[in-house]
Amino acid sequence: MIEHKIIFAGPTGAGKTTAIGQVSERPPVSTDVINSDARYNKATTTVAIDFGEITLDAGEKLRLYGVPGQHRFSFVWDIAARGALGVILIADNSLPEPMKELQFYLDGFASFVKSGAAVVVVNRLETHPSPSQEDYVNMLIARGTPLPVCACDPRKKEDVLTVLDVLLTVC
């Protein structure tokens, strides 16, 4: 059986844990704890990893790892990324400067981004239409790392499955 490891990364509150929870066949392994950081209006935050599993129609098995968003946990990114096939980078379009924020994660997963083993996902486009999907495409071309850009609501299973499909196509 073919097995792949996929990473979900991006800023705090982007929907990494939510996305994995939507598509995992079993309740994911969770390392969410109570959030004490007033900068983020959320009750819990991931401090180690999320882990979920999904078997695709073609029989491929995907192991889905979510990593923390906060920079103080960047050591987890390197550990989780070992042996991964590709990375899904979720941009939170409700942030004041979502494209600027995304740079940090593009750098954090630079080897995947450079080799094209990554997909950029933009959330909350209905409520925050700017920057647009096209703005992201252009920004990625301008920095010399063109990547597919998908609109996605991490709360919607179909959206997340589509993103996984796109990632597997480019990887």
């Binding site: 392994v29 969770s30 390392t31 969410d32 401090v47 180690a48 990893i49 923390p68 050591f75 987890v76």
Partner: peptide
Amino acid sequence: AMASSMMALAGA
């Protein structure tokens, strides 16, 4: 940061 990750993983 590392201790909190470890405790959360051990809890899992």
